[in-house]
Amino acid sequence: MALSPQDLHRIAQSRGWRDGRVEVFDTASGKVTVKGLRATRHAARYHLLNGVARLLGLPFLQAAPMPGGRQAQQTEVARLRALHGVGARVPEVLHVDEDHFVMRWLGQDHLGDVIQSHHPQAAALWREAGDALVRLHAAGQYLSQGFARNMIVDGAPAAPRLAGLIDFEDDPLQVMSLPDAQVRDWLTYLHSTLWMLPMPEAEADARIDAWMAAESPAVRARYLQACRRMSWLRFLPRHRRFGRDTLSLQAAAAAAHRYLQRHTGAPTSD
């Protein structure tokens, strides 16, 4: 997919991505997404979270630096190109300029919204996204922010499919190992989906078991460690009036507790 000089000029002159940071354009070659620079962020905002992660002995909870500006753009472009190079479903980078870059448009439907709406294909899409994570990790790669909001669904076909993954402005390998970054993908993915997943617990548990069985021993060990540390959060209230964050933590912790019971054969501490 190549952009014409006319399209590049129209994009460069637009106020849309300057004011709103992200803008979608119709071009002669198809739809594209333009992303401008994010304001620079101060590293001090991450010190507390990183300190807690070290205190708990869970390095994969560390925040990856998100400096903004050109550095963030360079990081995202490099990550997108690396992921595209191994066949991952990410937007193809089409053009890079000093204050913006252009990538292929994937769509506007987020997996989180699709699952929460209880779409008839929600469970199938949840499985497809998890399978994509397994393949990504097998290729030696990882995400940046593995939340369902960063997974785009193509809703055009009769049977919707996962169109791709977005948002790579930070690089977790700056502060953690590859297995840590990969297990963080699972924690963020499950945290952002399990609480609203229209699927029986036993079926979801079986799928998590299959995904972990396909992962490296290092990732499985770290996931088990995370399950031990977060299992007690299953006692959080499950009522919607306590908010989405509480519901999502409770559901992920309950799944972690069940995983421990299946894979250690011993009761967990309350």
Rank of each mutant, 00 (worst) to 15 (best):
P200H: 04
G51M: 08
M1P: 14
L197V: 00
F168K: 00
A72M: 11
L173G: 07
V183I: 06
G265A: 05
Q62L: 08
A253Y: 01
S4L: 04
A226M: 12
T193C: 11
R79I: 10
P91Q: 09
F25T: 02
R229H: 13
W126P: 00
L56P: 10
G36N: 10
W195P: 01
C227P: 00
Y189L: 07
A88I: 10
L94I: 02
R207Y: 13
S14M: 07
V22K: 10
A158Y: 05
T27S: 05
T27E: 03
S29T: 12
R38W: 13
A129N: 05
D113E: 12
Q73A: 12
R241Y: 07
F242R: 06
A206T: 03
F235A: 15
T75L: 08
A266P: 03
L83Q: 04
E203T: 11
P237M: 08
G140K: 06
G57Y: 04
F101Q: 07
D270V: 14
L143D: 01
M1A: 14
A64N: 07
L83F: 08
Q71Y: 11
G155I: 02
T27Q: 08
L236F: 09
R104D: 06
A181N: 02
M151L: 14
A148I: 04
A129Q: 05
P120T: 03
G30M: 06
G51H: 03
R21Y: 14
K35I: 09
V114R: 04
E23C: 09
E98C: 06
A213T: 03
P157G: 07
A266Y: 07
T33G: 07
R220V: 00
Y189T: 01
L249N: 11
A251E: 02
A53F: 09
V32K: 03
H110C: 04
G140R: 08
A43L: 14
R234T: 03
A43V: 15
H47P: 02
A204H: 00
E23A: 14
D209S: 04
Q174E: 15
R262I: 01
N150K: 05
H9P: 02
E128K: 08
G107D: 04
R45D: 12
A53G: 06
